[in-house]
């Protein structure tokens, strides 16, 4: 393990048995997250990006591979993990509507982690107020119920709950995808400010590349359970290597001319994402790839490092 890495994922696998066959939702991915950075995972539906976060957090038990948190291996699912670990790792979910119990007041929701971990005993109320202020919500919200507040505000409450136990790592699973852009801006800025203040590490998951550009320090792109390219954010957007990255970038709806210039022009999106039950052989992207070669359908490419910190999994670079 390298100094300063808070989370290391090695060859992580998570398979699900379904009626149609085995779904390899996450199929052998490796990456690491440095302390204080935001590592972004982008991908379309079925890419396994959310499953990756859920497996790291322990909602699912991994089928294979290893996860290290602060140098120690994480074993099994959430039920087998020690309480101290749950204090240190938290998660914010995609749908703010379902992440807060409709039958509980905001106070009960925020105070739950304090009670479970026996923190701030006797001062729970003060801490809850402090947390609400931290995410920029008025303290009067404490006595309200989730249905009485808006979607963006619910998400801020969910963030306050995640922060309650002073974790050092938070997994953010599409935290703004259900919200409007102005609320999104507020939440993202809140998250970035808190990250600065508390030196948090984020695993940020989204399908929105434009958002990723503004949030992540490093980005990994997933397709059908595999990581295809990992690079520092600026390089990822200015010098994309993998044809899939280029295809995604070319499909992003943008509003300014400067952005238009960043979009790869030659590649247009085509084809559909195959069913995860019938993953194509070889490179999983080859049926949609505009630069598909003979070898692509036969042999799976390996991840290689093109430049320091920039790795890609494609036969174009595997010569």
């Amino acid at each position: 393990m390298v100094e300063g890495e808070i989370l290391v994922v090695e060859d992580l696998r998570k398979y699900f048995k379904t009626a149609q066959g085995v779904v390899r939702a996450v199929d052998g991915i490796s990456f690491s997250i440095k302390e204080g950075e935001t590592f972004g995972l982008v991908g379309e539906s079925g890419s396994g990006k959310s499953t990756t976060a859920f497996t790291i957090m322990g909602v699912y038990e991994p089928t294979g591979g290893r996860i290290f948190f602060k140098g120690k291996p994480l074993i099994g699912g959430v039920k087998k993990r020690p309480l101290s670990l749950k204090k240190d790792m938290q998660m914010v979910f995609q749908d703010p509507g379902s992440s807060l119990n409709p039958r509980k007041s905001i106070r009960e929701i925020i105070e739950l982690p304090l009670k479970v971990h026996k923190l701030y005993r006797g001062k729970e109320r003060k801490r809850a107020e402090e947390l609400l202020r931290m995410v920029g919500l008025p303290v009067e919200f404490l006595d309200r119920y989730p249905r009485a507040i808006g979607g963006g505000e619910k998400q801020l409450v969910a963030i306050a709950r995640a922060l309650a136990t002073e974790p050092s790592f938070i997994a953010l699973d599409e935290p703004t995808s259900a919200l409007d852009v102005s609320m999104q801006a507020k939440i993202i800025n809140t998250l970035l400010r808190i990250q600065e203040e508390l030196n948090l590490s984020y695993l940020f998951i989204t399908h929105n590349l434009s958002l990723m550009r503004n949030v992540a320090s490093r980005v990994g792109i997933m397709y059908l359970g595999k990581l295809l390219e990992v690079a520092p954010a600026s390089e990822f957007f200015h010098k994309p290597l993998h044809p899939y990255t280029k295809m995604l970038l070319s499909s992003v709806p943008v509003i300014t001319e400067e952005e238009e210039k960043l979009k790869p022009k030659k590649i247009v999106s085509r084809g559909e994402i195959p069913s995860p039950v019938n993953v194509p052989p070889g490179c999983t992207f080859h049926p949609r790839c505009p630069e598909c070669m003979e070898v692509c359908s036969k042999k799976e490419p390996v991840m290689i490092e093109i430049e320091p910190g920039h790795t890609v999994k494609c036969h174009l670079f595997n010569s």
């Binding site: 852009v181 102005s182 609320m183 999104q184 801006a185 507020k186 993202i188 800025n189 970035l192 929105n208 590349l209 434009s210 958002l211 550009r213 503004n214 954010a233 600026s234 957007f237 970038l249 992003v252 943008v254 509003i255 300014t256 400067e258 952005e259 960043l262 979009k263």
Partner: peptide, 12 residues
């Protein structure tokens, strides 16, 4: 609206 060019998202 977050931009592909980066540079953060101005306050809403």
């Amino acid at each position: 609206v977050p931009k592909l060019t980066g540079g953060g998202i101005p306050e809403a």
